[in-house]
Measured scan of single mutants.
Amino acid sequence: MQRVNMIMAESPGLITICLLGYLLSAECTVFLDHENANKILNRPKRYNSGKLEEFVQGNLERECMEEKCSFEEAREVFENTERTTEFWKQYVDGDQCESNPCLNGGSCKDDINSYECWCPFGFEGKNCELDVTCNIKNGRCEQFCKNSADNKVVCSCTEGYRLAENQKSCEPAVPFPCGRVSVSQTSKLTRAETVFPDVDYVNSTEAETILDNITQSTQSFNDFTRVVGGEDAKPGQFPWQVVLNGKVDAFCGGSIVNEKWIVTAAHCVETGVKITVVAGEHNIEETEHTEQKRNVIRIIPHHNYNAAINKYNHDIALLELDEPLVLNSYVTPICIADKEYTNIFLKFGSGYVSGWGRVFHKGRSALVLQYLRVPLVDRATCLRSTKFTIYNNMFCAGFHEGGRDSCQGDSGGPHVTEVEGTSFLTGIISWGEECAMKGKYGIYTKVSRYVNWIKEKTKLT
């Protein structure tokens, strides 16, 4: 034993070699072989497995989906700052455009905790909710729209109204504003409101030439003092309507412009014939205590009207009353817009006519005020429907199939267009061939041609 100890002390290297040989010859039971080890760690190889990531292109799944990435790591994937920024906006807080917040056709661009709407022409605001041009839906104005110097929408209202708090709607500024039905039992019968379409306001006024200088022999019209197929109006439903009495009662109609003036057809009036105007009328054979009678003290036909040349060209006249009318729910003026808007309103496509005229061709006159909704007829169809001249200051309205029309005794009465609950004068009943005849239409004086003249002559002093 002493000898062994001496050998170990003198030859430590020998001992180490012996131990190493023993270990190498022993069977290893701690580690699995290569094949079995792979069965336990069965993990798919990654895209760049075996390579240094710093030297390969980034992978979106590896960089940002398996674990949260930084902007720089995302930049490695896209290799483009702009594309990385677009991805980053949604990656950080989701897609803010998912709810489609942009209105009126706006395009949404996502941002971090926010979004941006790219608005089409005519709109602005956070969600493109603000109209900035009158060309689109009248700028959301209830009545009139004008573009300011910086191309912003400025709404306005006709006389007797003021802008509401929203700067879009119009509200009454006087007790009985024009064009409004205020009798409670008839307010439910107000005709369907007309909503502004998209309009090209630059070209809204037709490029028409008034044929002022045409000389033409007097034409022989049949029954051209021209509501057939209409309905009984309720008291106060058309408070701007008046009836004219002269040699015979209810020979023509008219509309209240203001307390002192009536507008009617020029062919209705004769110099030297006494005319009485009755406002607030409903049943011409009954006294309903809503009527107001006034005498006409002055007749002003349009300066281009000449019955000797043509009885229905420039067929418009103004009547001055001896005493002002007292405005109330049964006696209310009709609204008159400017030339541009009167023309736009007419193009809405349908209007209402009213009167006490004959209820059928050569038949009896109506006792109760009649009204009828009539569609506008395109000019080409209008011209083809008659052998008589249709001037540019006239328009056609009615039904091709016949059966409904204005008729004798309705002449001078109103053709009105309702705009968001307020009625505007767009025409004056003038003439036609018979009444409600198939293929024939009622012919009306186009008020847009005469609004400046009306307003100039009827100013209240």
Rank of each mutant, 00 (worst) to 15 (best):
R140D: 13
F87Y: 15
D93E: 08
R449Y: 15
R298Q: 05
E320K: 03
C102S: 00
T133Y: 14
K446A: 08
E35H: 05
M437E: 13
L346K: 03
C18P: 02
R180F: 04
Q143S: 00
K446E: 06
Y91V: 10
A192Q: 08
Y91H: 15
E208Q: 08
A307V: 07
Q90T: 06
G355L: 07
E124Q: 12
V273W: 04
E286W: 08
R404G: 15
V273F: 08
T29W: 06
G106E: 02
G351H: 05
F399H: 13
C252R: 00
G160Y: 02
N38D: 15
T215V: 08
P44C: 04
T16S: 05
S107E: 09
L19P: 02
V257T: 00
I256V: 06
T194H: 11
F196N: 12
I336M: 07
R358M: 10
N104M: 04
G230M: 10
T386A: 11
Y305H: 05
I256R: 02
Y22N: 04
C69G: 04
V174T: 09
G421P: 02
S365C: 04
Q57N: 15
L163R: 04
Q185I: 10
S406V: 05
A307Q: 13
T85S: 06
G421L: 04
N203C: 03
P175S: 10
G13I: 12
P175F: 05
G412N: 05
F31N: 15
R46N: 09
P414V: 07
G105D: 06
S255K: 01
T461D: 14
N452E: 07
D150H: 09
G413R: 04
R62K: 08
E418Q: 11
F224R: 09
Y312L: 07
V181A: 11
H34R: 12
T417L: 00
G229M: 13
E433N: 15
R449G: 14
K89W: 05
S187P: 11
G442P: 04
F144K: 01
R379D: 08
G421E: 06
R43Y: 03
G106N: 02
A436E: 14
S184P: 12
N343Y: 03
L103T: 14
G421M: 05
G13T: 12
Q185K: 09
H314N: 12
H267W: 02
Y391D: 14
K446F: 01
E208L: 10
I284E: 05
T209Q: 11
P44K: 04
T422E: 01
V277T: 03
L20E: 00
F348P: 01
A366R: 10
F55L: 15
V228A: 11
I443C: 03
A317H: 00
V195M: 13
C435L: 03
K347W: 04
F71P: 11
K39T: 10
Q185W: 10
V242K: 00
I344V: 09
H400D: 14
N138S: 07
E208A: 12
H267T: 04
G280M: 02
R298V: 01
K311P: 10
K457H: 12
D198E: 13
T186S: 05
L211M: 13
G349L: 04
L372E: 11
S70N: 14
G412W: 08
E208W: 08
W240M: 00
T417P: 00
G122H: 05
A192K: 09
L103F: 07
S411T: 15
K347T: 13
V181L: 08
T84A: 14
E98L: 14
Q408L: 15
D249A: 02
E35L: 05
T85N: 08
F345Q: 02
I443A: 05
Y22Q: 08
V228N: 05
C170F: 01
E53H: 06
P301H: 08
V4S: 14
V419F: 12
A337S: 03
D338I: 03
A26F: 05
Y441N: 03
T190K: 10
E10I: 12
Q241G: 06
A265D: 01
L32A: 15
A266T: 01
E434K: 13
L244A: 01
E79W: 12
I7C: 06
T332R: 13
F221T: 08
W356D: 02
E10K: 14
C145Y: 01
D322M: 01
T276L: 04
R449T: 09
T190N: 07
V153G: 14
L318P: 01
E323R: 04
V181K: 07
S25N: 09
T389H: 08
N295D: 10
T287Q: 10
T287V: 13
V202N: 12
I136A: 12
I284W: 09
T81N: 08
S350T: 12
E231V: 09
I136S: 15
L103Y: 11
M6Y: 12
A317D: 00
C155S: 01
V451M: 03
L24S: 04
S107A: 11
L376A: 05
I256P: 00
D200P: 09
N283R: 09
I443V: 08
V4E: 06
R379L: 14
K152H: 10
S255T: 13
T133Q: 14
V359K: 11
T16K: 07
P301A: 10
C128L: 02
K440L: 03
E82F: 04
A250I: 05
K126Q: 13
C141W: 00
V153I: 11
V248Y: 09
G21L: 15
G403R: 05
Q370E: 05
S107L: 07
A164V: 05
K387Q: 14
S182M: 11
T426Y: 01
A436L: 12
E259G: 03
H282C: 05
D315C: 01
K274S: 03
V199C: 06
G105R: 07
N113L: 08
T215N: 08
C178F: 00
A279L: 01
V243K: 09
C435Q: 03
N283S: 06
N100A: 07
V243T: 09
A380T: 10
W356L: 11
E10M: 14
K446C: 05
N295E: 07
H303L: 05
V154W: 10
A149D: 09
I262V: 13
G432D: 10
T381Y: 07
A436N: 14
K137N: 09
C268H: 00
N283D: 10
A233V: 06
R46G: 14
E82D: 15
Y201R: 10
G398T: 04
R358K: 14
D410K: 11
Q167M: 10
L163F: 01
V183W: 11
H361L: 12
I275E: 02
E129K: 04
G439Q: 12
S411H: 10
K459M: 15
F71L: 11
W261F: 06
T85L: 09
V447Q: 00
E288W: 05
E142M: 09
G413K: 06
V451L: 04
R358W: 07
V447E: 00
R226G: 13
V77C: 15
S182F: 08
L319V: 07
S25H: 04
G409A: 08
